[in-house]
């Protein structure tokens, strides 16, 4: 194993899914270690110094969300969760517990690799990235230092709450944020159940920043889960 090679751990009980994950990850230059159960996965995660963990939520021995909680007590390593379509609640729990992203089965390799690139980039980004003075998506340019937002070169006026919301999304660009996470960040812990505030302000942001608010390209809704800012 060379030092430059990324290490990925796949915790998934289905053999065929492990197999295609391994093949596609290895093709991307990962060293892949597999685990069939949550316990085994935790042991692998502790010993292999992984850069990425892919976790199926439906494990035979323990709840995937508990695996995430356990991992998050000692590591910030990026976790991508795989879940069946029906388990909205499971996805939200996983994200609130600290998972970085999720994929709904069935998914294509292209999608998986795109998500992996995003989490690795976010993760690999040194702290100075947070001091970036500018953030751009589509036609929008955000001057973080002076709190100015421009769309196609024209300044857009955002209210302070709108700006705060946009700021949280920018800090987590590419990552899914659950309603709870966004509400806590923007409105404070007292408002974590007031998701209609969030929806209303998100609609305002789309009106101001998206070219077609009904078919947004950047401020993306993850139905039943939360939002994601896509560059």
């Amino acid at each position: 194993m060379t030092t430059s090679q990324h290490v990925a751990i796949v915790i998934e009980d289905e053999k065929q899914i492990r197999r295609f994950l391994r093949t596609s990850l290895e093709a991307e230059g990962f060293a892949v270690y597999e685990a069939e159960t949550g316990r085994q996965g935790l042991v692998e995660a502790a010993t292999r110094k992984p850069d990425l963990l892919i976790l199926d939520l439906g494990l035979p021995d323990m709840d995937g969300v508990d695996v995430i909680r356990d991992l998050r007590t000692w590591t910030e390593l990026p976790i991508i969760v795989l879940s069946a379509r029906i388990e909205e609640a499971g996805k939200i729990d996983a994200l609130d517990a600290g998972a970085d992203d999720y994929l709904t089965k069935p998914f294509g390799v292209g999608e998986l690799l795109a998500r992996i690139r995003v989490v690795l980039r976010r993760h690999g980004a040194a702290p100075e990235a947070n001091n970036k003075s500018e953030f751009c998506f589509g036609e929008v340019r955000v001057d973080l230092g002076n709190r100015h937002v421009f769309r196609a070169g024209v300044e857009v006026h955002l209210t302070s709450t709108e700006y705060r919301l946009l700021g949280v999304l920018i800090r987590n660009a590419g990552k899914v944020l659950t309603h709870r996470q966004l509400l806590r960040e923007v409105w404070g812990p007292a408002h974590v159940d007031s998701s209609h505030y969030l929806r209303t302000y998100m609609a305002h942001l789309r009106q101001k920043l998206e070219s077609d608010p009904a078919q947004p390209n950047h401020l993306i809704t993850e139905t039943g889960v939360g939002y994601r800012l896509v560059e």
Binding site: S195, H196, R199, R206, A214
Partner: peptide, 15 residues
């Protein structure tokens, strides 16, 4: 929950 229709339309089209 309280929702904005535009958002639901957007995510349906996206799916």
């Amino acid at each position: 929950q309280w929702h904005v229709l535009e958002e639901i339309v957007g995510s349906a089209l996206r799916s």
